[in-house]
C-alpha cells in the first residue's frame, strides 16, 4: 500500500506503480462484486457526493453503486436541478458540500481542469469523472484493467483508438495509461479531429483505418460527439462511417482475437456495426462491470486503503 495522492485527477501524473495499485485493488473488488452479498464496510460513515455538472448516466450510476457497495452515504447532485442554474459558482458549490462534511467529491464537468481547480481548494478527496476534453482517468483505468484481464499484459500490444480524438477525454486518458504501460498506441480519425500535435504525446497517427485494422490487438472506438462539435469539423456522419466505421466487412481485416472496446454510449451503425458490438470480440459490457470494480478500488485507495473488506 503506497497510494499517497489525495485526489484522482488524471492519468498523466500517475506512475506505473500507482496504476498497478488500482488494478490490484480492482481485482479484489471484482471478487467482492461477484459475491452473494456485494457490500463491504470500507467507507462506512463517509459521505460521497456525485457532482455531475454535465449530463451522464453510466458513469454516474457506476460511481453511485461503487460508493454504495463500499457502504458510503451517497448524495447525487445534478446540474439540471442544482444551484448552478441559479448562478452559484463551482467553487462556492463545492465549498458548501465540504461544509456539509462531504469527504469525497466525484466531479463531472464540461470545463477542462475543473477537477484540479476544486481539488486544490478543498481538503475533500476529488475524483475526476471527466473534465471537458481533458481526462477521464477511471475510464482509462477500467479499460487497461479490461485489456489486462483478457490479454494478461499491455506491454507490446498495439492499440488502435479511432474516432473523434480531439474532443475526447477518454482518448487522452487512455493514451497516457497505455503508453505508460508499454503499449503502442495508434490514433486514427478524420484529420480535423486528429491534429498532428497528438504525435508529441508519444503515439502514432493514421488516417487510414483499413491499413491499421490488421495490425491492431485492440480496436478502441470512440463516438463522434455531436454535442461538442460545430458542423465545420466533418461533412456528415455518412462520410465518417465511410472512412472510420467498423463494419462487419472491415472487421474481417482484424486479427481473429482482436478486442473491440468502446467507452459507451455506442452509436450503433456509426462507429461500430451493431452485430460487432454484441459479437464475441466485444468486451464492451465487461468494461462496464470492470468500471464498478475500478471505481470501488479508487474510492478505497483514496480513503487510505486500510479499511476492512469483510463484515
Amino acid at each position: 500500500m503506497s497510494w499517497k495522492k489525495k485526489d484522482l485527477l488524471d492519468i498523466r501524473s500517475l506512475s506505473v506503480e500507482e496504476i498497478g495499485e488500482v488494478h490490484a485493488a480492482a481485482r479484489t473488488f471484482r471478487d467482492v462484486i461477484a459475491r452473494e452479498i456485494k457490500k463491504v464496510p470500507a467507507l462506512r460513515g463517509k459521505t460521497v457526493v456525485n457532482l455531475f455538472a454535465e449530463p451522464s448516466t453510466r458513469t454516474r450510476i457506476s460511481f453511485d453503486l461503487a460508493a454504495k457497495r463500499l457502504s458510503a452515504d451517497v448524495v447525487d447532485f445534478e446540474a439540471s436541478s442544482s444551484s448552478f442554474r441559479k448562478g452559484e459558482t463551482l467553487i462556492d458549490t463545492v465549498r458548501n458540500l465540504e461544509a456539509l462534511n462531504a469527504e469525497f467529491i466525484i466531479l463531472r464537468h464540461a470545463a477542462a481542469g475543473a477537477a484540479q481547480f476544486i481539488a486544490e481548494r478543498l481538503s475533500a478527496h476529488v475524483i475526476n469523472a471527466g473534465d471537458g476534453a481533458h481526462e477521464h482517468p477511471t475510464q482509462a483505468l477500467l479499460d487497461t484493467f479490461t485489456i489486462l484481464q483478457n490479454r494478461g499484459r499491455i506491454a507490446e500490444l498495439r492499440v488502435l483508438i479511432s474516432g473523434d480524438i480531439l474532443f475526447s477525454r477518454v482518448a487522452r486518458s487512455n493514451i497516457h495509461a497505455l503508453t505508460k504501460l508499454g503499449a503502442t498506441v495508434v490514433l486514427c480519425g478524420p484529420a480535423t479531429l486528429l491534429p498532428d500535435t497528438f504525435r508529441e504525446l508519444g503515439v502514432e497517427i493514421s488516417h487510414d483505418f483499413e491499413a491499421e485494422l490488421p495490425k491492431a490487438d485492440v480496436v478502441y472506438l470512440l463516438r463522434i460527439q455531436h454535442e461538442r462539435q460545430r458542423a465545420v469539423y466533418f461533412p456528415s456522419i455518412g462520410e465518417f462511417v465511410a472512412l472510420f466505421g467498423l463494419t462487419s466487412e472491415r472487421f474481417r481485416l482484424c486479427k481473429p482475437d482482436a478486442l473491440i472496446m468502446h467507452p459507451g454510449p455506442i452509436n450503433r451503425g456509426v462507429e461500430l456495426a451493431s452485430e460487432l458490438a454484441d459479437g464475441r470480440n466485444s468486451v464492451i459490457l465487461e468494461q462496464v462491470t470492470n468500471g464498478l470494480a475500478v471505481r470501488m478500488a479508487v474510492l478505497y485507495l483514496l480513503n487510505g486503503g486500510q479499511a476492512p473488506l469483510e463484515h
Binding site: A112, G113, D131, H134, E135, R172, P195, T197, L201
Partner: peptide, 12 residues
C-alpha cells in the same frame, strides 16, 4: 495557444 499544451490539457 493551439499546440502541445492545448492537446494535453484538453483546452480549446
Amino acid at each position: 495557444n493551439e499546440g502541445y499544451w492545448s492537446t494535453v490539457l484538453g483546452l480549446h
